[in-house]
């Protein structure tokens, strides 16, 4: 373009799929870490409030659950919701704002990024946030000796998959939403009941059978089972089924969501 140009080399072919997806991830990472303190502090505090408020307060009135003290039962599932919430916010409100208000995506897809790269990167980032949020909960509860199995230290992997799964679901919801207030339906109608009926605060077998079956449909149920398997070093066929559920759910909903968003952005 100009003789004074000092660029040594700019490759003559577009970057690979992996490098494109990672560049989207990197963009989110850079923006997110701009406000690291306000973004990164709450995940460390929330589990403390939760364990103190529910675990100690309510736990006093609850007996053993399958031979486990209530606070330990609670701690074994408590790494899942932050991963769910962070991925959900990221891929509902976050995505919507980038899509409609800030128009960041328009800028990104005018480079060599495609719409698919964009949302694959977005899901990957939500998964990463899930991993970090779950890990930060672990950091807080581990010193209280609430996790008995050393395998529990690997449990935050579940945060990554939980993040991916809820990113897929969040994007799918976002692909339908035309007005940002419509997310209220999703949060009140889906996310909040999921929080209560997924085996986090009480075991599912205490529910009537029809609610138990309903709970098996909810993604968070399977996340929590994944975490519990690691915390109690107890890997059974239910754990295998939950892994299977998470993979299939993420893949199917993720692909549908990306296809729908692709249509929406390109039209």
């Amino acid at each position: 373009m100009n003789s004074t140009l000092t660029v040594r080399k700019i490759k003559s072919h577009p970057p690979s799929l992996v490098s494109r997806v990672l560049s989207v991830w990197f963009r989110h990472y850079r923006v997110y870490t701009q406000n690291l303190i306000s973004n990164g502090f709450p995940p460390f505090l929330e589990p403390l409030f939760f364990l103190a408020g529910i675990g100690l307060g309510l736990g006093r009135y609850v007996g053993l659950i399958d031979g486990t003290p209530y606070v330990i039962f609670l701690a074994s599932g408590i790494m899942a919701p932050p991963a769910m919430f962070t991925a959900t916010f990221e891929c509902t409100f976050g995505t919507f704002i980038r899509l409609v208000f800030d128009k960041n995506y328009d800028g990104m897809i005018s480079s060599s990024i495609t719409v698919r790269d964009l949302f694959a990167g977005e899901m990957l980032f939500a998964g990463t946030k899930g991993l970090v949020f779950s890990a930060s909960v672990l950091c807080v509860i581990y010193p209280f000796k609430l996790i008995s199995s050393p395998l529990g230290l690997l449990a935050p992997i579940g945060g990554f998959f939980t993040g991916l799964m809820f990113a897929a679901l969040g994007l799918f919801i976002t692909s339908f939403v035309k007005n940002i207030n419509h997310f209220n339906f999703y949060f009140t109608g889906v996310v909040t009941p999921m929080f209560f009926f997924s085996g986090l605060v009480f075991p599912l077998d205490s529910l009537p059978p029809y609610l138990q079956h309903t709970a098996e449909i909810l993604p968070l149920t399977h996340s929590i089972r994944f975490f519990r398997a690691f915390c109690f070093n107890h890997f059974d066929s239910q754990f295998a089924f939950s892994c299977f559920y998470i993979i299939i759910f993420t893949a199917v909903v993720g692909i549908l969501a990306i296809r729908r968003l692709e249509k929406r952005i390109i039209s």
Binding site: L5, I10, P14, S16, S23, F26, R27, D102, G107, S112
Partner: peptide, 30 residues
């Protein structure tokens, strides 16, 4: 305009260079 409002001028351009697969060392002089 659709720049990343939270980021600096330099970071906006660095991130954009990455979308094209341009490495930081090549991007900076550009």
């Amino acid at each position: 305009n659709n720049l990343d409002l939270e980021l600096s001028v330099l970071n906006n351009l660095l991130i954009y260079a990455r979308f094209y697969g341009i490495k930081k060392n090549d991007a900076l002089p550009r």
